[in-house]
Design a protein around this nucleic acid. Structure first.
Lengths: 212, 212
DNA sequence: GCAAAAGTGTTAGGAGTACACCCATGT
DNA sequence: ACATGGGTGTACTCCTAACACTTTTGC
């Protein structure tokens, strides 16, 4: 096992979507500083791994989540952001289908859990700021790339996608305009299937196109 | 003087504009590795400064340029990007009016100079990749914020602004559409002055509005 | 009067926004 | 039949893109 770069860490802001709510993944810390408090999963990078790999590894070790696409968003480099010594941290973000991953607290995580982004309490270090930055990034990215693919099942009714967009953008969207837009920007394609078993009129299913 | 974080550096991609060409600021290195080669100005961050301040300080020490607005763009964290040991580097970018700053090679810079971005040779480390990333950032940013303010005199004829945009975007722009756009998006305001002393018809001067 | 750069207007297509009602199903 | 969520169309505005000629000055 390689050695840590003790002045350089990665933190991961992972978003999931459940019951119409956008969730953020937090761990309960099992070591100092701020032991027993909830925070973003994060830790030091090693000397023999790229920072992208560090983010992947750290996320896996702490939460059991692997094989997801992480994006580097911003570096947090205030002098006293970390109490014990100087640590510059690189924020990585991802969106995942929360029910596809089993959460396994490992390494210095005592617990792992999803928290509604609107109900995240005060976190240690600059982690609240990180979540805000990550949310901002998400709002900008959501229209550009089919990242929402990671938050919904393969096939879904359009209104579910709209709910997701509303949860992320935190604003209401006109249903007709939303449909027109996602269809003719080529974000989704209509399938020849419908939902069944609902209490109401069945809805056509759609699929996100992987490339735009 | 504080100590260096030897695994963390900042590199600065500084753009200027002269004779209708977009230029990139390079230093001739005066220490190993890659001594005597031209590279982006960059060096280690110190323990007692934020990374933003590290970028400002490093730029000043190496080139004499100070008091400019630097933006953090991306982290480069490949394992072997730096030959002697592991260094993760944060790329900062800025645009400046090149003739307002006197270049003073200092610290481990033997010389400092402007190079046409289209004629930058092969640089050490991942610095060519950094310049490309910085240029990409510039292309996206140029329409959003009045960053071009830093590349032109206070008052300028509109066609000069267009030349600048064309130099950055590397494509031709329709003159009428360009004028309409920058005026009614509120990027510039027309002044009641004209150029004089040219060989041709005098042009109205414009000024960039600071806020959009 | 000529060379050189400044300046100008119209049209057509696409994207965004606002807005209100009928439809298909389960119970 | 009614409650529930699914689904649709139009009109207006604004931005973009394409396109060519006239104007003002210095020489």
């Amino acid at each position: 096992m390689s050695e840590k770069i003790i002045n350089l860490s990665v933190d991961c802001a992972i978003f999931g979507y459940e019951n119409g709510k956008l969730k953020s993944l937090l761990i309960k810390r099992d070591k100092e500083p701020c032991s027993n408090q909830w925070s973003l999963p994060g830790s030091y990078a090693y000397f023999d791994e790229t920072i992208d790999n560090a983010a992947r590894r750290v996320l896996f070790e702490l939460t059991g989540i692997e094989n997801i696409y992480l994006t580097q968003v911003k570096v947090f480099g205030e002098v006293n952001r970390y109490p014990s010594h100087r640590v510059v941290s690189i924020l990585y973000c991802a969106l995942i289908k929360s029910d596809l991953f089993e959460l396994i607290a490992g390494s210095h995580a005592k617990e792992v859990n999803w928290y509604d982004v609107n109900e995240v309490s005060e976190l240690p270090f600059d982690h609240n700021q990180m979540i805000n930055t990550a949310l901002q990034w998400l709002k900008e990215e959501i229209w550009r790339k089919p990242i929402s693919i990671n938050l919904l099942p393969d096939k879904f009714p359009l209104n579910q996608l709209q709910d997701l967009f509303e949860a992320i953008l935190q604003e209401e969207i006109d249903n007709r305009n939303f449909r027109k837009k996602v269809i003719n920007m080529g974000l989704v394609e209509k399938l020849n299937e419908k939902t069944k078993g609902g209490q109401q009129r069945p809805a056509f299913l759609y699929r996100l196109k992987k490339s735009i």
